[in-house]
Design a protein around this nucleic acid. Structure first.
Length: 407
RNA sequence: CGGGGUAUAGCGCAGAUGGUAGCGCGCUUGGUUCGGGACCAAGAGGCCGGGCGUUCAAAUCGCCCUACUCCGACCA
């Protein structure tokens, strides 16, 4: 889809334009000439896809239409933050239309689950699945679902979203198809995305003072081999032999540069390589090597005969450990509150998640922001019954919300 | 948008009361080292963000720009 969106196209869905207009960048000139109609640089591509759908959709037989594109988008943020909030960011955006609401809702859920699984199983980052409040939902959506992660400083990071649009956009853009009963119908739509924000999430979930800690599944190098006293007879040869032996089984790199071993240790730790394999004269004499975990720095002497299996075990142990550490941090920084006083006190003490009931009114949500500096992160799918009243207004409440400070 | 801060070597910084610049890291060369960022020696590297002013003399004082940055409000 194109990079530029004509203003008229952006205007077609009123909630959407109201939500995005304040943060779009506009192109007003072309080759020194003022443009007849200004164009915005896409902040998201729903309008472009809708325009496209209107042209290509004719029959229920064309449905579902499932699109995905990787591109960068621009949102004119007032405050930027490397990886987490940049004015231009690279993302993946999926856009689908379906014959029925049920199908579209299923798609929305499926994608949210895909993101959650990816974060938890591959990035080893625990997330909370839930629904956004109306105040926080995507402009123009009927429902927005989110996965919320907690960074190690206790701040929340929305790590992926999936939206259900109903047929609102379809109606605004005149997207129609001939249905099974030969009547003209509007398809039900979804969109969903994750961005390079996840890179920031990895850094801020797993990293420590020595640098990155990469989850093994996405580490470009899983094992780095550092020869010790590599000038001595046979060391480099042995290191090369091990690298060759591991190649194809695990992503391995031999650092045979002439930097000192200590320098290499620090360097590869900073880059987040999960395992370091040391091989030196003493090891060679005993037919073993030393493997050091990035997360705990724990050293293990490994007989060369058991090399492959031990590497597998250690990678898995590391992956599990970094997930558990992140989860422990989240649990330790999550509190349940019943009164506004309690909430304000906790919010003041430390960053973290605060669970409380909520009556559902936007006034109370705004009050939470004003009084405690907290925004609603989501209404988790897994609800807990804390009480029956909203701590903000005292009226009846049936929804539990997670509040927090967000990046 | 509101309120702070910073700008001096590739990077990080120091340069009170004005006298044309220094430290650490990095880089180059030689030697010794090599199981946690090695050591010694010799080097290279600077329009002190930009402009105007004050002064015999400005990195230093004054005014005006520009860029970056932090904290708020706004947002994936």
């Amino acid at each position: 889809m194109p990079l530029l969106i004509p203003e008229s196209l952006l205007q077609k869905e009123k909630d959407h334009v109201a939500g995005f207009a304040p943060e779009v960048a506009w192109v007003t000139m072309g080759g020194g000439e003022q443009l007849e109609e200004k164009m915005c640089i896409r902040p998201t591509s729903e309008t472009l896809f809708c325009d496209h759908f209107a042209h290509v959709l004719h029959s229920y037989r064309d449905l579902p239409m499932l699109y995905n594109q990787w591109c960068s988008v621009v949102r004119w943020e007032k405050t930027t933050r490397p990886f987490l909030r940049s004015r231009e960011f690279w993302w993946q955006e999926g856009h689908t239309i379906h014959e029925t609401a049920e199908e579209a809702i299923a798609e929305t859920e499926q994608q949210l689950n895909t993101y959650a699984d990816f974060c938890e199983k591959y990035l080893r980052m625990p997330v909370i699945k839930g629904r956004k409040t109306d105040k926080e939902k995507f402009a123009g959506a009927e429902a927005t679902y989110t996965i919320e992660a907690m960074m190690h400083d206790g701040k929340a990071l929305q790590s992926g979203t999936s939206h259900y649009f109903g047929d609102g956009f379809s109606r605004s853009f005149g997207v129609t198809f001939a249905g099974r009963d030969n009547t003209l119908q509007y398809p039900h739509q979804t969109s969903w995305g994750v961005s390079t924000r996840l890179v920031g999430a990895i850094i801020m979930t797993h990293g420590d003072d020595e640098g990155l800690i990469l989850p093994p599944a996405i580490a470009p190098i899983e094992v780095v081999i550092v020869p010790i006293a590599s000038h001595k007879e046979g060391v480099l040869e042995k290191a090369r032999e091990l690298a060759l032996r591991l190649k194809g089984k695990v992503r391995v790199k031999l650092d045979d540069s002439d930097n000192s071993p200590g320098w290499k240790f620090s360097q590869w730790e900073m880059k987040g390589v999960p395992l370091r394999l040391e091989i030196g004269p003493k090891d060679i004499a005993q037919d073993q090597c030393v493997i050091v975990r990035r997360d705990t720095r724990e050293k293990t002497f490994v007989p060369l005969a058991e090399l492959e299996s031990k590497i597998g075990e250690l990678l898995e142990a590391l992956a599990e450990n970094i997930y558990n550490k992140a989860l422990d941090n989240r649990e330790a920084r999550t509190v349940t509150c019943n009164t506004m006083d309690e909430i304000m006190q906790k919010a003041n003490e430390a960053n973290g998640f605060i669970k409380s009931m909520w009556c559902g009114s936007e006034e109370c949500e705004t009050a939470m922001k004003d009084k405690a500096g907290l925004s609603s992160r989501c209404m988790p799918f897994t609800q807990e019954h804390i009480s029956d009243i909203c701590p903000i207004c005292g009226k009846a409440a049936s929804k539990m919300v997670i509040w927090g400070k967000a990046y």
